[in-house]
Simulated assay, not measured.
Amino acid sequence: MESNTTRIAVLYATAQGSTRDIAEFIADALAARGAEIELSDIEHAPELSGFNAIILGSAVHNMQLLPTMTSFVNTHHDQLTQAQVWLFSVGLGPALRGPIGRWIGRTVPKKIAALRDSIAPRGYHAFAGHYERAGVSLKARTLYRLMGGGHYGDLRDWEAILGWTTSIAHSLGLPQAKSTPIHP
C-alpha cells in the first residue's frame, strides 16, 4: 500500500456479537474510503504505534464497558491519549423510549464516562445493540418495559452508525466512499 494511506485500527470487545457486527460495518465503511483497516477483537489487538487512528468499541454490561476493554484502555493509556481515538459503546440505553427512557439513554454511565474522559477521544457514541427476550428474567423484562423499551431483537440504528463513521472519515480527510457497506 502507499505510504500516505490512512491506517486505522478498529478494535472491539463483544459479548454476544452485536459490537463485533458494528465494528465490522465501521471497518467496511472506512475501507470503502481507501483506508487500510486492521479489525480485531481487543484480546488480539495489534501494536498501536503504526496507526493514524484507533476506533474502540465495547458492549456495555452493568453500566460499564466490558472488562477486556477497560483493561486494554488502562494498559495502553499513554498511547491512546497521544493518538486520534474514537470510542463507541453498545447497550440498551440508546433504544429506550419515553421521557424516562430517553433521559436514561442520553446519560453516559459514570464508569464509562470516567474511562472515556481518561483518554479524551475525538468522539464518543453510544449505539443500541441486539436484545432478545429469550433467557431474560421477568424482573429484567419488566424493568426494560418501564424504562421505555419498545421491542426486542435487533435495535441497532445502522443509519446512525454510518453517520458517525462518516464524521470520522471527514475528520481524517478520507475521500468519498467507493461503495456503501451493507449491514448484517
Rank of each mutant, 00 (worst) to 15 (best):
V85P: 00
V73I: 13
H125F: 14
T5I: 11
Y144P: 13
G50W: 00
I182P: 00
E36N: 11
A83V: 03
E24W: 10
I119L: 04
L162P: 01
H130S: 15
G34C: 09
T5S: 12
S118C: 06
L115V: 10
Q64C: 08
E132W: 04
T142H: 06
W103C: 14
L66G: 14
P99Q: 07
A59C: 12
R141Y: 06
W158I: 12
F51K: 00
W164G: 01
T165D: 03
S3R: 15
N52W: 00
G148D: 07
F25M: 14
I42L: 07
T70G: 11
W86M: 03
I42M: 08
L39Q: 04
G17C: 10
A31F: 11
H130Q: 15
T107N: 10
Y144K: 03
S171P: 05
T19L: 02
G98W: 01
H151F: 09
T70C: 08
N62W: 07
T5R: 05
A169M: 03
P67K: 06
K178P: 11
A140M: 12
M63G: 07
G50M: 00
S49D: 13
L146G: 05
Q64L: 02
H76S: 09
T68W: 00
P46S: 01
T70K: 08
G163M: 05
L96R: 01
T166W: 00
W158P: 00
A27L: 12
A35F: 02
P99K: 07
A126V: 06
S58A: 09
A83R: 05
S179N: 13
G17I: 09
T180I: 15
M63F: 14
R122H: 08
A29Q: 03
A134W: 07
L115H: 06
G105E: 09
W164Q: 01
A53L: 02
H61V: 04
I100P: 05
L30K: 10
R145K: 15
Q64R: 14
N74Q: 14
L92P: 03
G135P: 13
R20F: 06
G91V: 01
L39M: 03
H170Y: 03
I168H: 09
D41K: 13
F72Q: 04
N52C: 02
T107F: 10
L56T: 01
R106Q: 13
Q64S: 12
Y152D: 09
S3T: 15
F88E: 01
A160L: 11
G150N: 10
A27T: 06
A95M: 07
L138V: 13
A23N: 04
A9C: 04
S179I: 14
E159W: 10
Q82P: 00
D117I: 03
S118M: 03
G153L: 02
H77E: 13
E36F: 05
L65V: 11
G57E: 04
L66E: 12
I119F: 05
A134T: 15
A23H: 04
L65G: 08
W86D: 01
F88A: 02
A59Q: 05
S171H: 09
A59G: 15
A114V: 14
A134H: 13
H125Y: 13
A126R: 14
R122N: 05
P121C: 01
H76T: 04
A114T: 14
A120Q: 07
